[in-house]
Simulated scan of single mutants.
Amino acid sequence: MATPATPQLLQALRARYGLSQAQLAEYLSVSRAQVSMAEQGRRTLSAALWARLQPLVAVLENPAAATGAQPEGIDAAGREALQRRLRECTQEAAELRQELGQLRARAVQYQAVLRELLPLLLPLTEAAGADPARAWLLARQSEAAAELHRSGAAAQMLLELRIEALDYEAAQAALRLARATNLMG
């Protein structure tokens, strides 16, 4: 049984296939204005014209009925591109994990300077009047504060975000490769 002709159905057909009113009118051998009026509900297309559209309407109603409706796999070049990106993401994430470990270790060292070294030694330099030692400690304090800014919690979190993003991208690439392989087999 034929699907009833409606303006919405005509619009859906055009949208599905990316056709302009002029292109559909050309296929049906009618004017673009006739297609436009049919889409607006101001005019109806003849039964003969709707009959020409029925194979397309059937696809709208049941997309699996279309010829070749199964998802297409990717070609060898596409698989290679996905595999390459998977390797790149995996390798970059591993390198960033190493960098994150180093960042954390530096942060621990500079925190130790600020929380342990300075509080223990600074009072001794004041009591002994050791100006060179005091200057050295103050320089270490300045260095530690600057390094903690570069390697502290915020820097670590930003690096963790990059790692998580790369892990996610790698997982998605692997998933798509698996799907493509299943479609091929």
Rank of each mutant, 00 (worst) to 15 (best):
R106M: 10
E80G: 02
L56G: 09
R85T: 01
A64N: 08
A76N: 04
P71R: 10
A77D: 13
C89I: 00
A66L: 04
V57I: 08
A77E: 13
V57C: 12
R87M: 07
Q111Y: 05
N62R: 14
A112F: 09
Q109G: 01
L122Y: 07
A128G: 01
V108C: 08
E72M: 10
Q54S: 13
T90E: 08
P55F: 08
P55K: 09
Y110K: 03
E99A: 13
L56W: 00
Y110V: 14
V113I: 15
E116F: 00
I74S: 13
E95G: 05
C89A: 11
L96R: 05
V57T: 10
L96M: 09
G68M: 14
E88H: 11
D131L: 08
Q83R: 14
Q111I: 00
T125M: 05
R87L: 12
L60N: 09
T67W: 11
A107Y: 02
P63R: 13
V59D: 03
V59R: 01
P71A: 14
Q109K: 14
A105V: 09
A128V: 07
E80L: 15
L96T: 03
E72R: 14
P123M: 05
Q70C: 09
Q102M: 10
D131I: 06
R106Y: 06
E92K: 03
A58R: 14
A58M: 04
E61L: 06
A107F: 00
E116Y: 02
Q54W: 08
A66Y: 13
E80S: 10
L103I: 07
R84Q: 09
L114W: 12
Q98F: 01
L103S: 11
A127I: 08
R79S: 06
Q98C: 02
